[in-house]
Amino acid sequence: MEEKDKLEKEEEVNNTETVENPKEEAQMASGDVSGGDNTSESEEDDEDKLAKENEELKDKYVRLYSEFENYRRRTAKERLDLIKTASEDVLKELLPVLDDFERAFKAEGDGAEDNKASEGSRLIYNKMVKILASKGLEPMDGLVGKEFDAEYHEAITQIPAPSEELKGKIVDVVEKGYTLGDKVVRYAKVVIGN
């Protein structure tokens, strides 16, 4: 008898667990235990939270992406600037050699052009100037008569202007200035008329 009672109890439990309505069975399988077609408030709150979290994550992603793009552009620009000015120290050290060549040519004057040594020196000078120009070194030429600009010129003295037009302007260039790209490698040492 006991076994019969046990079997009957098991059948009762099994009958209560089975769902007779297939719609209820589908809702139970999908996890929808609300019992109706409308979603519960807690599910709507969860959806809102997920939507907000999704928006926050998208915003973080966009910000991170834009920061990375800015970083990439900045490092590329710095790399290009470094490549352009990498030889700046060597070029600065060669500038006095150019100055010496120019002083030697002034000292020789125009009559010494027939001399073979002078001709060789001019060839070397011209070759050196071309090489430095190919590396981006540009001399500041034609400064006499222009306005003084502290970003490119260094005033070493002032003298009375030979004419009214040269007052406050560059009268003479003592040492030629050079630029490497947009950067000043050596400021031009100039005399200003007052």
Results as ranks from 00 to 15, higher is better:
R63E: 09
S30R: 08
S121D: 10
N14R: 15
V33P: 00
V144A: 07
A155D: 09
L132H: 05
L57D: 06
E67Y: 01
K84A: 12
D59Y: 13
P22D: 05
A155M: 12
E138V: 12
D81R: 12
V173F: 01
A117Y: 05
P160L: 06
K9M: 11
H153D: 07
D110V: 03
V129Y: 01
D100W: 04
K52H: 04
D89F: 07
I83Y: 13
K176S: 10
D37N: 11
G136A: 08
E113C: 00
E147S: 14
D45Y: 02
D59Q: 12
V129F: 02
L57G: 00
N115H: 10
S30H: 10
Y61C: 11
F105Q: 06
L166S: 08
T39Q: 09
E47M: 09
S30C: 08
K9Q: 12
E41H: 03
K4L: 12
R79V: 06
R186V: 07
Y61L: 14
D99L: 07
M140W: 02
D141R: 11
P160H: 01
V33Q: 06
A76Q: 12
R186Q: 06
L64F: 07
N70G: 13
N70C: 07
L166M: 09
V174K: 14
K189P: 04
D45V: 05
L132K: 02
V13C: 04
E43P: 05
L80M: 10
E53N: 09
G142K: 04
E119K: 15
D110H: 03
A107T: 12
S40K: 09
Y187D: 03
Y125P: 02
S118C: 11
Y61A: 11
E108G: 13
N70A: 15
A188Q: 02
A29D: 05
I83G: 09
G36Q: 13
I192Y: 02
A86E: 07
G31V: 07
D89H: 08
A29S: 08
A51E: 12
N115Q: 14
R79C: 03
